[in-house]
Design a protein around this nucleic acid. Structure first.
Lengths: 340, 340
DNA sequence: CTGAAAGCGCTTACAG
DNA sequence: CTGAAAGCGCTTACAG
């Protein structure tokens, strides 16, 4: 069916030299007459020979391959993370496998093990909520592994790169306080130990921590209801500002407040200030411009990629944790004092 | 440095059988005593053996690997396309490489050839504006190749899957006409042969075609200025509706119109209807809800993936072109009559 | 300067 | 039921 690809053996036969000589020419090794090299080169051109890199790598014992396992590669944050990782991979000469788990524990395991069976050199993985013990043997066997956006279970399995969610929450709350707000709510994932412990829930928990700490540090009361707002209770909660623990929550809060006539733009007298965690496309276009605390997913990817080489070089030191800083982007929805 | 991975040879030695017997057990082939199998299995467990899939595939002559080459994997549309492709890949047992060209012709070639050197079975590629002749030999050699979102140069190099942009433009214009609009403008990429012929420019050209055709079909005059609107000229062009040829253009038009007091919501008396090509996150949240003609990038990816197997099976028929249908999603910004 | 042999980790085709 | 040999396409280590 498919035209057979010519091999070095074919090139050798055609140019009347030994296999090894072809190898020398292909690799640009010294010690080949110009005349011989020319003959080999001619045969290569005539046959359309291209070296099979997979075969070379098998012999070499490496694969020059990294893998990225996302929850959803199409999620904007994880896609950006991918890009950061891709950059590092390219610079270092790695090709990149990728795949999505859809937050399915079993699918993650199948995918990760399939990739390890291909002998990828490194693995960057956005872990599902499940157990990652299955990776211990692979890590032990030398697969450089970094967990991104959240730590694995059990923790300590490998290096971790996350955003500094607690710090981000503190920044957001401090920003609101600086604008005169005192009754500040937090809209996150419904609390409690969640069997469906998603990435968003993990992040939400960390943000709630930072929120509570910032309120306490400012000597502000943190009404229990403020800590467990839902989209429906935001308008009636009596808060003058709300911090939203994720893009979805930000959108929900904006919807609910707009419907209740408490949207963050000047048209609404009882307007509630809104600040979200995580930047999103067009955040600047939704009136009056949505202020966010933004982390840099591409940087998380780059950092993850940069942790790999040391491990590949044989570093078996204890797992590292990188908490990357976040930035507040004021756009209007949080830069006004409370109504009273 | 890294703990050596045990091989089948090690397992064979440990269990006192021949290599071939280990292979039989690992592959679940019949004709092995339970006792022998148990001994082998025990050795596998003790050694923590996992078959090297790359080695197996080398011998088999396949790689069970596909590659996706995007302009930007992080672009929301291309990320969705990736997901569609990933689904098909998973179903068919392929692992997936991916990479971004950043619309750089040379980078595309380097990446594609590196992937072919790894002997990927198939390639789905969002082509840059450059020449793709370098792929002819690879396609000839059996690499199943599909171009997505736009055709390659020269055309006819391989199968193509694109959105039906002309059809989408016609739908959009017809929608506006049905709501009473007659002076309809088109905001796209600046016309003319563009040396920097981006994906957006290609799409924009196809949309302009559909726009012109729809106007002509309805017997409506298409003022030349209406066909070459820029963000700055939209408010003063005297049109009552504008069709935008991409997410960026839609955002620009919304900005310009809002600033000129001609935004698409009821608060503006001289409001201009807006309809965009390509859906975006929160299109429903930007008041009054942005009507779009939406194509389904995930479906493009799936379709591309589904074209691969036939080629892998040896089909050398002429290149196929799939133009996938688009859908109009009314959200408010285009569902009102012109002011007069 | 050039090449014959062995090997990467596995499977295929044959023997016993 | 079990195994010894050859081979996938390349490189490594040694000879000449």
């Amino acid at each position: 069916m498919s035209t057979q690809r010519p091999t070095m053996k074919d090139v050798a036969a055609r140019s009347g030299v030994a296999l090894k000589t072809v190898s020398r020419v292909v690799n640009g090794e010294p010690g080949v007459t110009q005349a011989t090299a020319d003959r080999v080169l001619a045969a290569i051109a005539e046959l359309g020979f291209r070296r099979n890199e997979s075969a070379r790598l098998l012999r070499t014992g490496q694969t020059a391959t990294l893998a990225f396992i996302a929850g959803q590669v199409a999620d904007p944050d994880q896609a950006a993370l991918y890009r950061g990782l891709e950059e590092v991979a390219r610079e270092q000469g790695f090709l990149l496998y990728s795949g999505s788990t859809d937050d399915d524990e079993d699918r993650e395991e199948r995918l990760a093990l399939a990739l390890c069976a291909r002998r990828v050199d490194g693995l960057v993985i956005v872990p599902t909520a499940g157990d990652h013990g299955y990776l211990a043997a692979e890590i032990q066997a030398g697969v450089a592994t970094v967990f991104a956006l959240r730590p694995p279970e059990p923790a300590g399995l490998g290096d971790v790169v996350v955003a500094d969610e607690p710090g981000g929450a503190k920044q957001a709350v401090a920003h609101l306080i600086a604008h005169g707000h005192r009754r500040i709510g937090y809209l996150g994932q419904p609390g409690g130990p969640d069997p469906q412990d998603t990435l968003a829930a993990y992040r939400s928990r960390r943000l709630a921590l930072g929120y509570a700490e910032a309120m306490a540090a400012a000597g502000l009361p943190a009404d229990e209801r403020w800590l467990s707002l839902t989209p429906g209770t935001v308008p009636g909660a009596g808060v003058t500002a709300v911090f939203c623990g994720g893009k979805a929550h930000t959108a929900q809060a904006l919807h609910a407040l707009a419907a209740a006539g408490q949207g963050a733009d000047a048209a609404h007298p009882g307007r509630v200030a809104v600040i979200g965690f995580g930047d999103f496309e067009l955040a600047g276009l939704v009136p009056p411009g949505i202020t966010v605390v933004s982390y840099d997913p591409a940087r998380i990817g780059r950092t993850a990629g940069e942790l790999l080489p040391r491990r590949l070089a044989g570093d078996r030191g204890p797992p590292r944790l990188a908490e990357l800083p976040v930035t507040l982007i004021p756009r209007g929805s949080a830069e006004f004092p409370p109504p009273d």
